[in-house]
């Protein structure tokens, strides 16, 4: 992979990177779990989730629990593939940096 290939702008943001990586390992998580893990405000997390949903990196499902709806977020196949590509891009960036340096 070429080091010149631009990094995925959606994933190349610390909060979103951690969010997507956590979902890749965990499988599924609620809004509350993500908020506690990432230590962000409701508005901030919501904005990141919207961005990831808009490009179809994550999907959500709603389930009724004790007369209220709970939303579960998980990574889509596209999101998983793009995370892999993003990791490969970061690794090649590191390697090219070492080669040049």
């Amino acid at each position: 992979m070429s080091a010149d290939k631009p990094l995925d702008s959606i994933l190349h943001q610390p909060v979103r990177t951690r969010l997507v990586a956590f979902l890749a390992g965990r499988g599924e998580a609620t809004f509350k779990e993500l908020k506690e893990l990432l230590q962000v405000t409701d508005g901030n997390l919501d904005a990141h989730l919207r961005k990831l949903s808009a490009v179809n990196y994550i999907s959500s499902r709603k389930q009724q629990v004790n007369n209220r709806f709970q939303t579960f977020y998980s990574l889509t196949e596209k999101g998983r593939d793009n995370l892999k590509s993003y990791v490969a891009s970061l690794q090649s960036l590191l390697l090219s940096g070492k080669d040049n340096g």
Binding site: H12, Q13, T17, A21, A24, G25
Partner: peptide, 17 residues
């Protein structure tokens, strides 16, 4: 954003998950 930090962050989140 440093690639080093990003990779470390991905590694730790995957492991935590």
């Amino acid at each position: 954003i440093s690639p080093d930090n990003q990779l470390e962050s991905i590694q730790s989140m995957l492991s935590y998950g």
